[in-house]
Write a protein that binds this DNA or RNA. Structure first.
Length: 842
DNA sequence: CTTCCGGTGAGT
DNA sequence: CTCACCGGAAGG
């Protein structure tokens, strides 16, 4: 049989299967989804088997055998391979890129050479025959005649030529293989003896000299449970030597065992029982349960206001799914994946939960992944990439806060977890449940269309239909949504208040301090940043490699570029006009913190932003402190808006609601509405009633007014009008192509070429190029224009936007156009990055 | 994306 | 005749 392999070279030329023979020793082990090492262009590369076929496409002379099989259990299953193919097609990326995205990074092996000293090189007296006095040769001999080539090169940097010569001559034999970045963690573990009766007799017969060793043996006979060597030594306060002594006498066993890194080890999760559901929850649950029983793939949009108890519905639906021996995936936005959230799932489903998020080390993530792969977990809670969890039989995929833009991956493969989930669910006849208090317009339109309640008569036919809307309009326990006060900051200024706190917010904060209640303050950070500006000439510090302002880091007193990492010393005087009035504007949150300290002496503030949460576990630490009421105010950026649930929070303040409103992104209003609604939902979730104060300069804007009244549907009506008028999603779809090159002129001409080729192809396919507003199909190619960041890492950037509606084969046209581009004779080629359904247009 | 290979031209 | 360098094609 022949294995068709995708090699790990992410370029267009190699993005196709290559055939390899399966050696007899591996037959039966190599499967679709296996990870293998294969010879390719004179080296060994990692690859994935995507098919096993009886005949090769090339003649057998060219065919080479697979060099090695990298795992016992294939890391991917045939359904994931199929999914990868869909992703590579839909999101225009190399198949290997999609495949790689599905496995933990610990498994991304790189080729590594091991050199062995050939036997002929040694004479009978042990002296080396060929090159006697090379120091590296002695080193190889000392290491048992075998050593990693990389290590040898590292130890003997000057010996490259002589090592190479030795390999060519055959003195050294080179063997190439793929080494994983990380193996399972092994630990020495003590076991009770195989034959307890025999051991017991032997212990009794032993002299009193080995008292300590006898103690070890008796302990193991009594407890019976395997225990890590180090832990036992500590428990009995002795050294491991004593325990090893007991092993030598045959009283106990010491073996290497695979240790599971459990990031949540030693943390007790209080077991919870299903709560009784409210009427609203029950109705939703019933519908999900029935759909689960039908075992056909469906998509539900669970539109529940904040505090309506969506999580309990998820938990019970999962329970139902598990009873049926099917597994469940829960996706949560990265920043909402708080210990609180994890606790709810661990508390209900215990050890059968695997947790996956970016704050785990790569080893921890690998172990959680294996827990799923080996069938020891039935539920996974994780960020975006958990949609690829290697379960065998998925019954349910839940996407909480489905509107979050973090479900879109910004690097290749630029997939949207929501779309991947829908596709994967179809493979498994599983349900997708999209949950949100503020659904994305795309999902909402898809769900309304299927219900026959047209959200808009002209909703695009390209919008996927067939989602079922499940509304949950009431909060659990009949608690009212918090009252939202809009404060017009223009009036504050007129009234002579130049502080960043309105009088009302000031008073509200004071009241919480008096009552000992807590407040959450949100700084809508987009628009603020930490930059340097000269107050006399207006100079701002720019990155020399990217067209972007440098950010100021207070700790290191340095200026840094976010995009390329360039760093320089912060200047003392303006480099342009030599004025001393150069100012460093700190993060917005820093400024707010300072002002709070000034206005409310003794106030305890926890500040959460990129500066204070980069350290591992810091995020968690702050939230625990706040939960323990060790602070009065939790101040932060978007991360304080999501998923937090603290009973003593009765005030939410939004310092400036509109900083995100006027960004040049068609989703600006939607993002603002979502953020305000989410953060308002943090107040008054328990017994104490909540209050929200929103400061704004645009109190009439529909996004702000709708959020004041918690009125999703009027926001949607208004926003859909704008989107339709401007022909933006969900009334069309977008593909953003970014081109970059060192040379501006070449970049522009290549960009023009791409755009005109695309236009020609579209015309030839008979698709009209403008939107008639009647919902019919069209494809429009905009640009090329300079990207929002026109230069990054010394490369200029231009972009084309493809806007289309209906089944026009847009990505096929694009792929065709890219392949038609005639090289750049002599110059390095223009790099192109394709973003299908981009979330951030900025 | 690397590596290989054949072609060229300068150097021994 | 050898060697370094380059550009283009192939990689199973």
């Amino acid at each position: 049989m022949i294995a068709r392999v995708i090699v790990d070279v992410p370029s267009r030329a190699t993005d196709r299967p290559f055939d390899y023979g399966i050696p007899d020793a591996m037959s039966g082990w190599v499967e679709v989804g296996s990870r293998v090492g294969v010879p390719f262009a004179g080296r060994v590369l990692q690859g994935f088997v995507i098919a096993i076929v009886p005949f090769a496409e090339v003649d057998s002379k060219k065919l080479k055998p697979i060099a090695e099989l990298l795992d016992h259990l294939p890391p991917l299953s045939p359904d994931l391979v199929e999914l990868a193919q869909w992703i590579s097609d839909k999101y225009c990326c190399a198949l290997t890129t999609a495949l790689q995205a599905m496995i933990p990074s610990a498994l991304k092996g790189k080729a590594d050479s091991v050199v062995t000293l050939a036997e002929e090189a040694e004479a009978s007296d042990g002296r080396l025959i060929e090159v006697a006095d090379e120091p590296w040769l002695h080193y190889v001999r000392q290491s048992g005649g075998e050593v990693r080539l990389a290590l040898l090169q590292e130890r003997f940097p000057g010996a490259a030529a002589s090592i190479k010569a030795a390999i060519q001559r055959g003195t050294l034999e080179e063997r190439v293989s793929i080494r994983d970045r990380l193996a399972v963690r092994k630990v020495l573990t003590v076991f009770p003896p195989e034959n307890p009766a025999e051991a017991e007799a032997s212990i009794a017969a032993a002299s009193s000299r080995a008292a300590k060793q006898q103690e070890v043996a008796r302990y193991m006979l009594e407890h019976r449970e395997p225990i890590p060597l180090a832990a036992l030594a500590q428990a009995l306060s002795m050294t491991t030597g004593t325990i090893r002594g007991a092993e030598e006498k045959g009283w106990i066993l010491i073996r290497e065992t695979v240790q599971q890194r459990d990031p949540y080890a030693g943390r007790g999760f209080r077991r919870t029982e299903p709560l009784s559901l409210t009427e609203g929850q029950q109705a939703v649950y019933d519908e999900l349960a029935e759909a689960l029983d039908n075992e056909s793939s469906r998509v539900f949009l669970l539109h529940g206001v904040t505090g309506s108890g969506k999580t309990e519905v998820y938990l019970q639906a999962i329970e139902r799914c598990l009873k049926d021996e099917r597994q469940a995936i829960v996706l949560v936005p990265e920043i909402a994946l708080t210990p609180q959230m994890v606790e709810r799932f661990k508390g209900r489903f215990g050890d059968s939960v695997a947790v996956m998020h970016s704050r785990l080390s790569s080893g921890e993530r690998y172990d959680e992944w294996r827990k799923i792969r080996e069938g020891r977990a039935q539920v996974t809670v994780g960020a975006r990439s958990a949609v690829f969890a290697p379960f065998k039989r998925i019954g349910l995929i839940i996407i909480d806060e489905e509107h979050e833009s973090s479900y879109k991956q910004e690097e290749s493969p630029k997939y949207h977890a929501r779309d991947v989930a829908v596709w994967r669910a179809r493979q498994h006849n599983a349900l997708v449940v999209l949950g949100s208090a503020t659904p994305s317009l795309e999902s909402f339109v898809a769900a309304s269309a299927s219900r026959g309640q047209e959200a808009d008569g002209n909703a695009s036919p390209s919008v996927k239909r067939g989602a079922t809307l499940l509304p949950m309009p009431d909060r659990v326990g009949g608690r009212p949504l918090p009252k939202v006060h809009l404060i017009d900051m223009r009036d504050e200024l007129k009234g002579g208040n130049r502080s960043m706190f309105s009088r009302q917010l000031h008073e509200a904060l004071l009241l919480r301090l008096e009552r000992g209640e807590q407040s959450v303050l949100l700084l809508n950070r987009r628009g603020y940043s930490t930059f340097v500006m000269c107050r006399s000439c207006g100079y701002t510090a720019q990155c020399p490699h990217c067209d972007i302002s440098l950010t100021y880091h207070q700790k290191s007193k340095a200026l840094r570029c976010h995009y390329c990492g360039h760093a320089e010393q912060a200047p003392e005087v303006c480099p342009s006009c030599e004025s001393e009035h150069i100012r460093f504007f700190g993060t917005g949150t820093q400024r707010v913190e300072e002002e709070l300290a000034k206005l409310f002496p003794g106030i305890r503030v926890i500040r959460m932003d990129v500066d204070t949460t980069t350290e591992k576990g810091s995020h968690e630490k702050w939230l625990t402190q706040f939960g323990n009421r060790e602070a009065d105010v939790l101040l932060g950026t978007q991360m304080v808006a999501k998923g937090l649930d603290f009973p003593y929070v009765t005030l939410v303040g939004v310092i400036a609601a509109d900083t995100s409103l006027h960004l040049p992104d068609f989703r600006a209003a939607e993002k603002t509405f979502q953020l305000l609604t989410q953060v308002a939902g943090r107040a008054g979730r328990h017994e104490l009633p909540g209050e929200v104060v929103v400061q704004t300069y645009n109190p009439e804007h529909y996004a702000i007014v709708s959020s004041q009244h918690h009125d999703y549907s009027s926001f949607v009506q208004e926003e859909l009008k704008h989107r339709r008028f401007m022909a933006y999603p969900p009334f069309c779809r977008l593909i953003l192509v970014t081109l970059s090159h060192e040379q501006l002129a070449l970049l522009i001409s290549e960009g023009e070429k791409l755009a005109s080729t695309l236009r020609d192809l579209a015309r030839a396919a008979g698709v009209k190029s403008s939107d008639d507003g009647d919902g019919s199909r069209f494809i429009d190619i905009l640009g090329p224009v300079a990207s929002p960041i026109p230069r990054m890492k010394d490369r200029y950037r231009f972009q084309c936007m493809i806007k289309y509606r209906g089944n026009v084969g847009a990505s096929d046209l694009l792929k065709q156009a890219i392949s038609l581009l005639s090289g750049t004779n002599g110059q390095p080629p223009v790099t192109m990055s394709v973003d299908v359904d981009p979330q951030v247009i900025l």
